[in-house]
Each structure stands twice: as C-alpha cells, then as structure tokens.
C-alpha cells in the first residue's frame, strides 16, 4: 500500500515534470528499437508511440529477481528494468490494463497494477548473460514466483510473456 502510494506520488511528479518540460524526456531512441509503448501514454517519441532502445531501458531503475520458473530447470537470476518504471516513464495509469505483445504476435493481457503489487521486471539478462531472441529475449516479463506462492498459477505463467516487443496500454 505504502509502495503503491509512493509510486502514485512518483507518477504525479513525473507527470508534472513532463507537462512543464516535455522536451527533456522526449528523447529519441538512438539504437535498435527494442520496446514500443502505445495506447494511453502521456508522451511520444515516434509517431503515436514511445520507443525504447536498449540504452534507454538500461537507464531506468533496475530490478533483480532470483526465482524458479517453469521454463528453466534451475533457479535463475533475472535482471532488467522495473516494469513499473517503464510505465511511469511514459506516464501510464496503473489502473489500466496492458496488452503485452511478443515477437510472434502472441499477446497476453496484464493488469498494470501487477507491476506495482508484485514488483515485476522486464528481464534483459539471465544469470548475467544478455537474453537473445533465441533465449526468449529481448525482454521477458518475470514475476517473483518464489516470494509469493500465489503467483505459481497458470494465470501468472500466462502473463509472463517472453520475446516482448511491444506493450499497449488501454
């Protein structure tokens, strides 16, 4: 709850900053586009969307989750930007729903509140190694399964989209 309200304050501050000085944040991706944000977003840098390249994602607050998953035989260490930080960066509302889209156009609906409630990350590294496409990269939505048994269900496994290329907020 505390975390939630803190995030709200943060969101509000970010939002105000964007209103005052949008140019500061309206940076364009310099490298290969990795993640495209669309839908109900407050800022854009490429048409109606906001595009992150690898460097931009690495610049956001990072998180680390060590957990067992159904996709790997052993406990693995995942690293990547906090999913909540990504949403905050584009001024998204945490009461909205997200459509998380994979490279093969597979998609899953995830409530934005999950990102705050469970401390979700979009993993870019596994055990220190960069996730390539063949390794379910570039982005893999990871819940901290081991810290909350309630997460070890089909619902959350299905929300854990890999090879993410875009997120649509609606």
């Amino acid at each position: 709850m505390n975390k939630h309200s803190r995030s709200w304050v943060l969101t509000t501050v970010l939002f105000l900053s964007i209103l005052i000085c949008p140019k500061l944040f309206a940076q364009s991706p310099e490298g290969q586009p990795v993640l495209t944000m669309s839908g109900k977003i407050a800022v854009t840098n490429q048409g109606d969307t906001w595009v992150f390249d690898r460097a931009m994602l690495e610049a956001l607050p990072q998180g680390k989750i060590i957990t067992e998953t159904p996709w790997y035989d052993e406990v693995s260490e995942f690293e990547g930007p906090l999913a909540s930080a990504i949403l905050e960066a584009v001024g998204a509302d945490f009461s909205d729903n997200l459509r998380v889209i994979a490279l093969n156009d597979y998609s899953a609906v995830v409530p934005a509140s999950d990102f705050i409630d469970h401390g979700v990350i979009l993993a870019m590294k596994i055990n220190g190694e960069v996730l390539r496409v063949r390794d379910k990269g570039p982005l893999f939505l990871i819940y901290p399964f081991d810290s909350d048994p309630a997460l070890k269900t089909e619902v959350y496994y299905n929300r854990s989209v890999w090879q993410i290329k875009a997120i649509e907020i609606y």
Binding site: D73, L103, V133, D135, Q163
Partner: peptide, 17 residues
C-alpha cells in the same frame, strides 16, 4: 535473422527433459 532466432528459441521447450 529475427525469424530464425524465433524459430531457434522454440528448441528450448523441446529440449526440456
């Protein structure tokens, strides 16, 4: 290359014992 990478990524599931 991306197409092939995606195809390659599917091996993972098949390899699982």
């Amino acid at each position: 290359e991306l197409r092939f990478e995606i195809l390659y990524s599917r091996i993972g599931l098949l390899q699982r014992g």
